[in-house]
C-alpha cells in the first residue's frame, strides 16, 4: 500500500531531519549529541518510568491529533483544540467534583467523560455552524473561540471556582479518578488505553461507515459530493462536532487521569500540538498513535536532558517535524 509506505518514508525523513537539527543545536550548546541523544532515548524508551511518561504525554496528543485529523478529512481545519480542551476540562472538573459521593467508579468516570466530550463537542459544533451557516472561516472562528474560552475559564475560576489561594478547582472524588497503569511512578493512566480504542473507533468510522464515507467525499470534492446528493453541510458540522469531542476527551484525560481538578494552564499547548501530530500522521487515524508517540518521546526526552541543552530546543525540534511534514504534504499536492 503506497499510502503506508509514504507515511513511513515521511516519518523517517522527519525524524532524521529533526535529529540533524537537534545535533547542531546541541553542539552549539556545548553538549555532545551522541551522549544527549543516548540519554534522551534511554530515559524515554529504556526505562519504565520514562516510558510511562511518554505514554502519558502521547495520550492527549492522540485525542487532539484526532480532533484535527477527523475534520481535515471532511475539508475543515480545526485549530480550536485549545479552547475545546479547556472548556471540556473545566466542565468535566466542575461536574465531577459535584457528583454525589458513593457513586460507583465506572459510572462517575462515564458521566465525567461524557460531560467533557459534550462540552468540547459543543464548542466544535459552534465552530462548524459558524462556518457552514454564517460563512465565517473556521480558522478565524476558532482563534476567537480559543481566546474567549481562555478568558472566561480564568475569570470563572478566579471569581468562584478556584479554591483557597490556588488557581485550581476542588479535587474530584476518588470514584471519578482514573486508575494509573502502575508504570513505576509515572502518570500513565488507563486513559492511554482509551486513546487507543478511540483512535481505532475513528479509523473504523472513517473507513467503514456511511458517515465516514460522506465526510471523505465532502473533503475530496465539495461540489461533487453536493451534486451526488450527499448532505455536505450537515456532514461538515458533524465532523467539527466530533472533533471538538475528541479535544474534550484530552481535557478529561488531564482532569480524571492526572490533575484530579481543573487548574489554570491545564493542557496548554496540547491542542496546538495536535495539529503537528495530525500533520505527521497525514490525517490517518491509526498513524496518529505513532505520531503522538514521536512527540511524546521528544517532549519527555527534552525534559530528561534539560540540564544539558536549552529548554527551547524541544520546541525547535517539534517545529522541524512539522515543517518536514508540511513540505512533504505540499509536494503531494503539486
Amino acid at each position: 500500500m503506497t499510502g503506508r509506505a509514504r507515511t513511513i518514508h515521511l516519518t523517517v525523513v522527519a525524524l532524521l531531519a529533526t535529529m540533524a537539527v537537534g545535533s547542531l543545536l546541541m553542539i552549539v550548546a556545548g553538549a555532545s549529541p551522541l551522549h544527549a541523544w543516548g540519554q534522551l532515548l534511554q530515559k524515554t524508551l529504556g526505562e519504565r518510568q520514562g516510558f510511562g511518561q511518554v505514554l502519558f504525554r502521547a495520550t492527549p496528543l492522540v485525542f487532539t491529533g484526532l480532533a484535527v485529523a477527523v475534520p481535515l478529512r471532511a475539508g475543515l481545519f480545526n485549530i480550536g483544540g485549545e479552547g475545546q480542551l479547556t472548556a471540556a476540562a473545566l466542565a468535566c472538573a466542575v461536574v465531577a467534583a459535584a457528583l454525589p459521593p458513593g457513586l460507583p467508579a465506572p459510572l462517575a468516570v462515564l458521566i465525567a467523560t461524557a460531560v467533557a466530550f459534550l462540552a468540547g463537542a459543543a464548542v466544535g459544533a459552534a465552530t462548524g455552524a459558524m462556518r457552514i451557516y454564517r460563512g465565517a472561516h473556521e480558522v478565524i472562528v476558532a482563534i476567537g473561540l480559543n481566546a474567549i474560552i481562555a478568558g472566561v475559564a480564568l475569570w470563572l475560576g478566579n471569581r468562584s471556582l478556584f479554591v483557597g489561594e490556588s488557581t485550581r478547582t476542588a479535587t474530584i472524588p476518588a470514584a471519578a479518578q482514573l486508575p494509573e497503569l502502575g508504570l513505576a511512578g509515572s502518570n500513565a493512566s488507563v486513559s492511554a488505553l482509551g486513546a487507543l480504542a478511540v483512535a481505532a473507533l475513528m479509523a473504523w468510522l472513517l473507513a467503514r461507515t456511511r458517515v465516514g464515507f460522506t465526510w471523505r467525499m465532502t473533503g475530496q470534492g465539495l461540489d461533487a459530493a453536493r451534486a451526488a446528493g450527499l448532505p455536505v453541510d450537515r456532514a461538515r458540522v458533524w465532523a467539527m462536532t466530533v472533533a471538538g469531542g475528541m479535544a474534550g476527551l484530552a481535557g478529561a484525560h488531564f482532569v480524571l487521569g492526572h490533575k484530579h481538578a481543573y487548574e489554570d494552564g491545564l493542557g496548554r499547548g496540547v491542542g496546538f500540538l495536535g495539529i503537528a501530530v495530525a500533520l505527521l500522521a497525514q490525517g490517518e487515524a491509526l498513524a496518529i498513535i505513532g505520531a503522538a508517540l514521536v512527540f511524546g518521546v521528544l517532549g519527555q526526552g527534552g525534559l530528561a536532558i534539560a540540564s544539558d541543552v536549552p529548554k527551547e530546543m524541544v520546541d525547535v525540534l517539534q517545529a522541524v517535524v512539522v515543517l518536514v511534514a508540511a513540505a512533504s504534504l505540499g509536494r503531494r499536492r503539486a
Binding site: 511518561q53 502518570n187 494552564g265 493542557g267 530528561a304 529548554k311
Partner: peptide, 21 residues
C-alpha cells in the same frame, strides 16, 4: 544540583516528577 526550566504549564509537574523519580 540539577535544575529544570519547564517550558510550559503541562511540563511543571513532569519536571518535578522527573527529579523525584
Amino acid at each position: 544540583i540539577t535544575t529544570i526550566e519547564p517550558s510550559d504549564g503541562a511540563d511543571r509537574e513532569a519536571a518535578l516528577r522527573q527529579l523525584a523519580a
